[in-house]
């Protein structure tokens, strides 16, 4: 009996941990992988609970010059305000491992949100990098959009100017806004995948 429950546990562990790892990373046009993650507000967020809404995932590292480009000029906060105002669930995701650039505790992150006047729906803390690996998040920022049916409809850069200059924001084509506008008006997303730009996500080695 003991032996049987051991095997049962092993199979369960395999299903829980190994199988998701074997699955292909998130791909545009396919169902976005489900996730459960803890927010800096202490709440738990699950993608499956957000069916019916557009969901934006924004990979973040407050020390990265490319992230700072979009926060110091207020660009990201403006996008968060606009799109959450239009019913989008906007999640800032932090996959920096402890000891690496951008790693923050929940209270540090909440203080940062206040200081920067950032208004995402929530900040998901992913110090293990699990969520980052499932989505194959490469850079900060790296943006993903999931439609109300749960399909990934955008994967890539925030805009078409891969620099750290704040002055490059004005006049750039914002791929996230463009994709959301198109999807919300029932059109296909014209630019659904681009090369994300920025600092590497600081995963645990």
């Amino acid at each position: 009996m003991k032996r049987l429950s051991f095997y049962f546990c092993m199979v369960l562990l395999m299903v829980l941990f190994v199988v998701p790892q074997l699955l292909e990373a998130a791909r545009v046009g396919e169902t976005a992988p489900d996730f459960v993650a803890l927010g800096s507000d202490g709440k738990t967020y699950r993608l499956a609970d957000l069916k019916g809404k557009f969901v934006v995932l924004e990979w973040h590292n407050q020390g990265c010059p490319y992230t700072r480009k979009h926060y110091e000029g207020g660009n990201m906060q403006g996008l968060q305000k606009e799109w959450t105002g239009r019913g989008v669930a906007w999640f800032t995701v932090i996959s920096s491992a402890p000891g690496t650039q951008g790693y923050v505790t929940a209270s540090e992150e909440n203080a940062y949100l206040g200081r920067m006047h950032a208004v995402p729906t929530a900040v998901l803390l992913d110090p293990s990098g699990q969520l980052g690996h499932v989505y194959n998040a490469k850079t900060t920022p790296h943006m993903f959009i999931i439609n109300p049916q749960g399909a990934l409809i955008y994967d890539g850069a925030i805009d078409n100017r891969p620099t750290s200059d704040v002055s490059d924001i004005n006049g750039a084509t914002n791929y996230v806004s463009l994709a959301l506008e198109q999807a919300m008006s029932g059109k296909p997303v014209a630019t659904a995948a681009t090369r994300p730009y920025g600092c590497s996500v600081k995963y645990a080695n």
Partner: peptide, 12 residues
Amino acid sequence: IKLAVCRDVCVT
């Protein structure tokens, strides 16, 4: 010249 110089972190 504009550039990014990186190690584990980047400085532009």
